[in-house]
Amino acid sequence: MTSSTLMASGLSVGDVAAAPALPDVLAPRKQRSRIGMFMYRHPTIFVGGLLVALIVAIALLAPLLFTTDPTALAPARRTRAPSAQYWFGTDMLGRDVYSRVLYGSRISLIVGFSVALLASVVGLTIGLLAGFIRILDTVVMRVMDGLQSIPGILLAIALMALTRASVENVIVAIAVTQVPPVSRLVRSVVLSLREQPYVEAAVAAGTRTPIIILKHILPNTLAPVTVQATFICASAMITEATLSFIGAGTPPIIPSWGNIMAEGRALWQVKPYIVFFPAIFLSITVLAVNLLGDGLRDALDPRLAKRI
């Protein structure tokens, strides 16, 4: 190895013994730990993941983070400014905004993750079937076109108007609006995967269609779907907050970021902190999830990064 390197630099083998020690300017290559390497290669995944982990930790550990009952009314202490006792102040019913914002993160995360999961699973199923069954493809994709032609938030409002307000119904209503893009994505991936020689080879090798879908198609659609799911998660959190803000989402009794902002809206000009804190938390969470999604997209499929 050494001699060949020297030969490449123009020295003959005989010079090896006399060769001077390598100059000091060639500093040793910087060694990075595995975590350091990951941070260096995928900074967005790292930052996004860290922030998401932080928000999840806040949501899980809310009772331990010096919060009080987020629904406890205290009319005597209403609309207090942020202080050592009430970190984010109190709202017009005297409820502690800090506690409400921390507990509110649970709703946002539950809605975001549930919608992402539900929309991905349903979208995957529809996309796989549509990609494999031509008749179904025509019908299902026209239905998806129809769904996509309605603005997502309007569709969610309409669906919420059909049922009573609850977190589960919000999840379903938002998931319905997110299924079309996922199924469209999966269908397009399936259609291109079906033409792959390894799928044709599997057909020639006598593999039955369900096994082909499970073993050859599904694993190769998971990467783009995972990326899409993170974006759905982020947009679902915004949609949930929007629905709650206009009173069509989570019931007002449950502290969600949208509800807190909706209630603080009337006092926006005099007590801006009631709106400010949940808004900041929502922005940071959505930013974190989007960063994670961007990073995953680049890491999992460089070609997809250019296409979206």
Binding site: Q196, P197, Y198, E200, A201, A202, A204, G206, H216, N220
Partner: peptide, 17 residues
């Protein structure tokens, strides 16, 4: 299918990654 098999051109896309 057991008796007829196939080898494709592109060795990169003919095996499931």
């Amino acid at each position: 299918r057991r008796r007829i098999q196939v080898v494709f051109q592109d060795p990169f896309s003919s095996l499931n990654p």
